[in-house]
C-alpha cells in the first residue's frame, strides 16, 4: 500500500531540504514564538515576516500552489478562531462592536496573521524533510525518551491501522453496500472498535518480534546528524531577520 499523505515534498533537493533537521525544528519553533509574541493589533510587522517566509518558500522549491492550497484548507478554522475575538467581546456585552473599524477587528486580523504565518512555517517544516528525520531531530534536541519511543511506534502503527481500516471498510461495504440507513452510530462505533482490536493484536505481534530481536526501547540509527557552516549561517540569518522585525520594526509601527 502507498501512504503518501505524510511529508509529500520531502524528497526534493533544495538548500532548505539539506539543512539539519534540528536547525529546521529550532527555526520553526523560535520563529513561531517571535511571531506570536507580537502585541495584539499590530499589522505592519507581518508584511516583513511574510517576506522572510516567502524567501524561505522560494528557497525550498516547494510548489507555491501546494502551500497555498494547504493554507486555504486550514484558513477557515484560523479565521473562525480569530473572529471569536470580536464576537466573544460582543457577546460579553463589555464592548459595543458595530463596525469593522472597531479595534477588536484589528486584533482579530493580527490573530489571523499570526496563526496563518505559523501554519505556513509548519507546512514548510513537514515538506522539507522526511518525517522520521524530524523525529530524529526531536530526539537529538532532548525530547523525553518515552515520547520518542511512542512517536516512533505510533508513526509505524498508523500504517497498520489504515490498512486494517481499509480492510474493515471493504468487508462492511461488501456485506451492506451503499449508504447505511439504520444504526449508523452503532455500526460506526463497532467498526472503529474492531479496527482498533485487530490493529492492537497485530501491533503486539510486531512488538514481540521486536523484543525477541533485542529491542530495549531504543531505536538505534546509523544516520549521524552533523551541522555544518551553512546550517549555522542560515539559522543566524533567519533568526536575526525575525528578531529585527520584532524589536526594531514593531516598536516603530
Amino acid at each position: 500500500m502507498k501512504h503518501s499523505f505524510i511529508d509529500k515534498y520531502s524528497k526534493l533537493n533544495s538548500t532548505v531540504h539539506r539543512l539539519d533537521p534540528r536547525i529546521k525544528l529550532l527555526m520553526t519553533f523560535l520563529g513561531i514564538i517571535i511571531i506570536v509574541s507580537e502585541p495584539p493589533g499590530k499589522i505592519l510587522p507581518f508584511a516583513f515576516y511574510g517576506v522572510a517566509v516567502l524567501i524561505l518558500m522560494l528557497l525550498s522549491r516547494i510548489p507555491l500552489g501546494f502551500i497555498i492550497k494547504r493554507f486555504l484548507i486550514l484558513s477557515p478554522f484560523i479565521l473562525m478562531a480569530a473572529l471569536f475575538f470580536p464576537v466573544s467581546l460582543w457577546l460579553t456585552n463589555d464592548e459595543q462592536i458595530v463596525n469593522l473599524q472597531h479595534p477588536a477587528f484589528k486584533v482579530a486580523l493580527s490573530i489571523f496573521l499570526k496563526a496563518g504565518l505559523s501554519v505556513i512555517l509548519l507546512i514548510l517544516l513537514i515538506s522539507t524533510d522526511k518525517f522520521h528525520n524530524l523525529l530524529l531531530g526531536l530526539r537529538k534536541l532532548k525530547m523525553p525518551k518515552l515520547i520518542g519511543v511512542i512517536a516512533a511506534l505510533m508513526y509505524r502503527y498508523v500504517f497498520i491501522l489504515s490498512d486494517e481500516a481499509l480492510k474493515t471498510k471493504r468487508a462492511r461495504e461488501s456485506r451492506t453496500p451503499g449508504k447505511l440507513k439504520v444504526n449508523k452510530m452503532k455500526v460506526f462505533s463497532n467498526q472503529m472498535a474492531m479496527i482498533f482490536l485487530r490493529s492492537w493484536e497485530r501491533s503486539k505481534i510486531i512488538y514481540h518480534s521486536m523484543l525477541s530481536r533485542g529491542f530495549n526501547g531504543e531505536f538505534p540509527v546509523m544516520q549521524k546528524l552533523a551541522m555544518n557552516r551553512i546550517d549555522v549561517v542560515f539559522f543566524v540569518c533567519f533568526l536575526t531577520a525575525f528578531l529585527a522585525v520584532r524589536f526594531l520594526i514593531t516598536p516603530l509601527t
Binding site: 511512542i150 511506534l153 509505524r156 502503527y157 497498520i160 491501522l161 481500516a165 490493529s199 501491533s203 503486539k204
Partner: peptide
C-alpha cells in the same frame, strides 16, 4: 505497556 500506548496513539491520530 509501550505497544498499547503506541497503537492507542495511532488510533487517536487517525480518528
Amino acid at each position: 505497556e509501550i505497544p498499547k500506548m503506541g497503537i492507542t496513539g495511532a488510533a487517536l491520530f487517525v480518528a
